[in-house]
Design a protein around this nucleic acid. Sequence first.
DNA 1: GTCTATACTTTGATAGAC
DNA 2: GTCTATCAAAGTATAGAC
Lengths: 199, 199
Amino acid sequence: MGADEDAVIGRRGSRPKGVARRQEILDRAIEVFREQGASGTSLRRIAEAIGVSHAALLHYFDSREQLLVAVYAHAEQNHENPPGLRPGIDTMIHAARRNVDIPGLVTLYSTLLAASLEDEEGVGRDFFTARFDVLRGSITESLRVQQREGLVRDDVPAEHLAALLIAASDGLQIQWLLDPGVGLESTLQTLGVLLRPPA
Amino acid sequence: MGADEDAVIGRRGSRPKGVARRQEILDRAIEVFREQGASGTSLRRIAEAIGVSHAALLHYFDSREQLLVAVYAHAEQNHENPPGLRPGIDTMIHAARRNVDIPGLVTLYSTLLAASLEDEEGVGRDFFTARFDVLRGSITESLRVQQREGLVRDDVPAEHLAALLIAASDGLQIQWLLDPGVGLESTLQTLGVLLRPPA
DNA sequence: GTCTATACTTTGATAGAC
DNA sequence: GTCTATCAAAGTATAGAC
């Protein structure tokens, strides 16, 4: 493999490829998603919308899955947490609200996540495993602090609450997509009430 | 349609198509999932495992998606709620435990659900919309009763709790698949604690 | 380094033969 | 009712132009 050769030869490895152009492609790909939603996400359709051949995309990304994961990761990191807000219910509500704003982002997330369950070896597998790990970790830590401050009930383990927060947020966004009457934000607020210490 | 002809002609009606054969195919397809998991779910692979051509499957199911939805629906209905248990945390835990027992069932569910988000017109769309609707409805009703009985806190709307229960269960099963250390059952038990009325 | 052209393979789906 | 043949689309991989 070329990468191995680089490592062996001693070249300063891992400058994936044209970083600038790669970013450019990602940005335009996100635009495609913002306009067309999750439909027509085949390599050829994306390439056509960007104005290159589908093979060109594979010059920067090893596979369609890798491209889509990069697109999602890029979109997710573009709207990071507002400063001064500790990970918890409020940040989840904030994130959910914005996810729903970008058409196709929740769908893309769900599709890639499902694909990562199917393929033990895929690129998405590592991404989502790490994502959940980091998310659970930071939320757990934040909740533990809030438990000490008396802001969150401390009769249940913070790890469980963190996993529940993420699961509820993910699941509710899907339910909301299928039936907007579900009330995404208000339901998450209710979960926030459940976290409060008993008066 | 053949079924209509039968009815008009007066033959002993309503053998829509090969109902028996259709069931047979479904049963064997589920076996394939139980053994091989969610991998190799292409029409040709399933057909090969059953011993027919892939076109034969399309004789009984209009599309691959319809077949897979039927497979999931069949598997889900096969393990219905234990009698005497009202819809709520306990039934969700019960269901989650069994889902996790059948390899590939959670993955199949997630995949079909994601696909239904992508395709506004697909067969899965109606299925999942209806499924969530029915689930939320029955759980809401059950929780309302338990609120009156003092078993569930009544300072939050039962509809929200129902949506949260389903979302948490769905989301946790996925997190558990990616990292079994998550503690599916114990985390759901914790959610049960959150539902209890403040002492 | 960047990209096009092209071909290979799998897949879902359809049409028609038996 | 089932198969064979066939198609179009898609992901992937390679060769080579610039």
